[in-house]
Write a protein that binds this DNA or RNA. Structure first.
Lengths: 214, 214
DNA sequence: TAGATTGTTAATCGATTAACAATC
DNA sequence: TAGATTGTTAATCGATTAACAATC
């Protein structure tokens, strides 16, 4: 289904298409043209058609796109039609925020483990999951075939823990630590650098930039 | 100091330069060439020089760049040399995570208010700040000259609260809700869409993509 | 001075937009 | 069929990389 060599620019836009199509679906809209969607999303119709045609022809001339069909197809492309097992390392506020966020589970991301290196919170239950010691990390990943690990710990610890994760055969790391992780080529890293996001905001605030970018 | 029309691609990279220079500074390194930095950061030396020269000539032929000087200059460009008053709307786990994150304060982002619409947590103290009712939002922003509001509430509430913020004259919104906010041109919006980030991870996981992007 | 490395111009590459033939 | 809108090719625009003269 998926061609090789899709540009990161396209991939970054896919989840946004998915979100808009989900909203259209909820509001009961059956079909939409690239022109209409373009108006709602503030991108060109041409870009929408180009982006989608990287993955196949989902539309029909003279008609447009069927909202539900396109939504489901993009879901498949994004891999949210399948379940993904996930653990969270770092049971602080950020880790708990992620554990509690129901929408992730709706999209197939199932949190099955929560780890921390602070003995005082071992055994604490968050959304039905017990906080465990990070010492149990490796066995847990192997025994439960965990694919994704969210890293919500400080940067110095993150580098060490990432090594354990890789050693245990993790497939993807969702990295919230302010550090670039060095991982083998077959491990996916998705970074969420909040402090960098806040600095971009600060730049735009300081230099009176408008908000035009999505 | 700052030219108009800096591309968003450049702006997105600035905080990362800032982070690396901060680390170099901490480890006591005084000077660095674009070539060396290029090796550490996995970008081309040419790009580093092009990026920096959007803002001025910070280096010296035959020498390279003085780490501390460049760090401070990029800090000025990003606006982190000045204090910025910030409030957080939504005192759940995510809001508390941001309130507790000390590094933001180190960079000049001072959280002075924490708001929620759940009466049960009014008065709760997080990092020395008392949770207040969102009804007090407008007066607080005006009286305390708040520049930045972090929105850590669900999307349906976010749209309504954003209107109040804009009405009260907020300058920038750090939006964690999964919705695109419609704001006047002079209001900055920086989005952190975690579910979109997780879907990009999922895409790369599903399609065996390597981690190459920063 | 000779060597190193910047700042900057020119060349290349890639992404976006426009245009339109194909077709539902 | 006529009108609408896609899929796709071609044109444009912008961003990245390469090259090198300037200069410390």
């Amino acid at each position: 289904m998926v061609k090789e060599g899709i540009s990161t620019a396209v991939i970054k836009r896919l989840p946004r298409y998915y979100r808009y199509l989900g909203e259209l679906l909820e509001s009961g809209i059956e079909r939409i043209s690239s022109g209409e969607l373009s108006g709602k999303m503030n991108v060109t119709a041409s870009q929408i058609r180009q982006d989608l045609n990287n993955f196949g022809g989902f539309g029909q001339q003279g008609y447009g796109y069927n909202v539900e069909y396109l939504y489901l197809e993009i879901g498949k492309i994004l891999g949210v039609d399948k379940k993904h097992s996930m653990i969270i390392i770092g049971a602080g506020n950020l880790g708990q925020a992620i554990a509690n966020y129901a929408n992730f589970e709706k999209r197939g991301f199932v949190v099955t483990g929560l780890f921390d290196n602070n003995p005082e919170i071992y055994g604490k239950i968050v959304r039905g999951i017990e906080v465990q010691s990070t010492e149990k990390l490796k066995d847990f990943i192997i025994n439960n075939k965990i694919e994704i690990a969210a890293l919500t710990i400080p940067k110095n610890e993150a580098v060490k823990v990432a090594e354990v994760l890789i050693d245990a055969g993790i497939k993807a790391i969702w990295n919230f630590a302010h550090v670039d992780l060095n991982v083998p080529k077959d491990v996916v890293v998705e970074n969420v650098h909040l402090s960098e996001s806040l600095m971009r905001l600060s730049y735009n605030l300081t230099n009176d930039k408008k908000n035009t970018e999505y």
